[in-house]
Write a protein that binds this DNA or RNA. Structure first.
Lengths: 194, 194
DNA sequence: GAAGGCATGTAAATCGTTACATGATTTA
DNA sequence: TAAATCATGTAACGATTTACATGCCTTC
């Protein structure tokens, strides 16, 4: 069992990848893990403080001109804790909170038009995210090719694939609801294939 | 903009579907929306109290023998608030927290064997959940056929499809990593298809 | 010289889980 | 009669967001 707090997990990993300041950790999260593991300043700075107090990271003041700046690096204990968590196959948080699905679940309480409006709205949001992911993709691919960073690229590819699948599901469900035959073959075909 | 708290959203919806007590709301969530919208007793009971205080629900004591029991129903204001939220296409929470993906993201920091162990562990968890979903499916299908509750069934079908997609992605990624050629066509084919 | 980015942090509020406490009723 | 289920709730803790505050540096 890993005793690292949720935010500590991503912080230690980012430090090990070479990110140095709280500010940069936040930026790195926002362009990479945010989709499946986000964190705000209000979590990052206090957590860095706690991690230093418990000896998992060390802090060095590295001002740039007069801008105060604190660089963090992993201690031996920090390296150990990170490795322990990364190789722990027991713990396995999976949480999804999806307001679109909740509204769909309650769809019997509103009209079909209301349901359709929500499906479309949700699909449009997903399409926006997908567009952003595809825009990052060439960059991530280069990161893989030039810095041998395969895994961030793999995670991105998962995100892209999942969004594509979701968007297609929404589109298909919209089509069926529009035609008034929203049913049956979906699950039948889905469960028989693979 | 809906002012309903996250837990209030699922509570009001469940009340409208005919669920009556805090205890039953929790049970209903656990067999239906839990996958994408969960709640614990520690949220449900205090929230019911708040909803009563703000006039969105009304409480009636309906003891069964000596077991105290409080039944809740929506007030007019509660119906309005629920309907407003259900037909609001603006707000749209989408949050995912997936420890497996975070570990995969940091995969460059460990050995390929460690990554593979984590992919397999995660896939096994997903397979368990999928098994449970498939077990509920006939029940949900009946609920649709007999009580005209289409939408819970649709949400379940989304869950099943998404899990199938994820599991296949994991299996495929494992195969590629095992062969040492984890790459390239995946995204190429994923983005070109569809 | 204004805007935007760099950089760090705190306070308040909200949200959520877990563990605990209590006691009745039903089922094996 | 023991275990499971029904039923309600609180306390402590932990996680998280949002808004605020501060001030330097760089770029337009």
């Amino acid at each position: 069992m890993s005793s690292l707090s949720p935010t500590a997990r991503v912080i230690l990993g980012m430090l090990k990848l070479g990110v140095r300041t709280g500010y940069d950790i936040k930026k790195a999260i926002d362009v990479s893990t945010k989709f499946f593991w986000s964190a705000s300043y209000g979590q990052i700075y206090p957590e860095l403080k706690r991690l230093r107090e418990s000896g998992l990271v060390r802090a060095r003041s590295q001002p740039r001109g007069k801008v105060k700046r604190t660089e963090y690096t992993l201690t031996k204990a920090g390296e150990r804790a990170l490795h322990e968590w990364l190789t722990d196959t027991e713990s396995s948080i999976y949480e999804l909170r999806d307001e679109g699905l909740l509204r769909l679940f309650f769809g019997d309480l509103v009209t079909t038009d209301d349901v359709l409006a929500n499906l479309r709205a949700r699909r449009e949001v997903l399409e926006l995210v997908l567009t952003r992911f595809r825009a990052i993709e060439p960059e991530a691919r280069e990161g893989f090719a030039e810095e041998f960073q395969l895994h961030p690229y793999l995670a991105l590819s998962y995100g892209i694939g999942m969004l594509e699948w979701s968007i297609e599901w929404y589109a298909e469900t919209e089509r069926r609801l529009e035609k008034g035959q929203p049913l049956t073959e979906r699950i039948a075909s889905a469960t028989s294939s693979e």
